Amino acid sequence: MKQHLFEQRHNADWLSLDKRLQALEQGKAEQQDCERFAADYRRLCQHLALAEERGYSSHLIDQLQRLAMRGHQQFYRHRSHLGAQIIRFVIAGFPRLVRREWRAVLVASLLFFGSLIGMGLLTWLFPEMIYSLMPTEQVRQMESMYDPDARRIGRFAERDSGDDWMMFGFYIMNNIGIAFQTFASGLLLGLGSLFFLFYNGLVIGAVAGHLTRIGYSETFWSFVIGHGAFELTAIAFAGAAGLKLGWALLAPGRLSRGEALRQAAAQAIQLVAGVILFLLIAAFIEAYWSSMTFASAHLKYGVGAGLWLLVLAYFLFAGRDRHAPD
Rank of each mutant, 00 (worst) to 15 (best):
L67R: 05
G118K: 05
L110T: 07
L48Y: 07
H81L: 15
Y56D: 03
P95W: 01
M166I: 11
Q63C: 11
V107L: 08
L97K: 04
G93A: 03
Y76N: 11
R70M: 01
F113A: 00
V107A: 06
I153K: 08
G118I: 06
R77V: 01
W124V: 07
R159I: 09
S80I: 07
M166S: 15
M119N: 07
Q141Y: 12
F112H: 04
L125Q: 14
V105K: 00
S144C: 02
A150H: 03
A68L: 03
W165I: 14
A150K: 10
F170T: 09
I61V: 13
E53V: 06
M142V: 06
L111N: 05
A104V: 07
S80D: 14
Q46K: 12
R99V: 02
Y131L: 08
M134V: 09
Y146L: 03
H81E: 15
L64G: 03
R103W: 12
Q85C: 08
G83T: 09
L44Y: 02
H78G: 08
G83M: 04
E158F: 07
R88L: 10
L106V: 06
V90E: 05
E158R: 11
I91T: 13
L110W: 01
R54T: 06
C45N: 15
A68F: 00
A38S: 13
P95N: 04
I87V: 14
D164G: 01
P127R: 01
D40T: 01
I153T: 11
M142E: 08
P148R: 04
Q63T: 14
L48W: 05
Y41L: 04
R140I: 10
A108E: 01
F89T: 03
Q141I: 09
H59F: 11
M119A: 08
R96V: 05
D147C: 03
I86H: 05
E53S: 13
L133S: 02
T123L: 05
D149V: 10
L106W: 05
S80H: 13
R103A: 10
T123Q: 01
G93Q: 03
E35A: 14
I153L: 08
R77E: 10
T136D: 10
R79N: 13
V98D: 01
S58K: 12
I91K: 12
F126E: 13
L110F: 07
G154D: 02
I61M: 09
H81M: 15
D163T: 06
G154Y: 00
Q85L: 09
E143D: 08
R77Y: 13
I86C: 08
A68P: 10
M134A: 09
P95G: 06
H59P: 06
Q73N: 14
Y76L: 08
A51G: 02
I117W: 04
V107D: 00
L82E: 04
F75Q: 05
Y56K: 00
G169W: 09
L60Q: 01
A150V: 09
F37R: 01
M129T: 15
R79E: 14
M166N: 14
R99H: 01
S161Y: 12
A39D: 14
M69A: 12
Y56C: 06
F75E: 03
M69L: 13
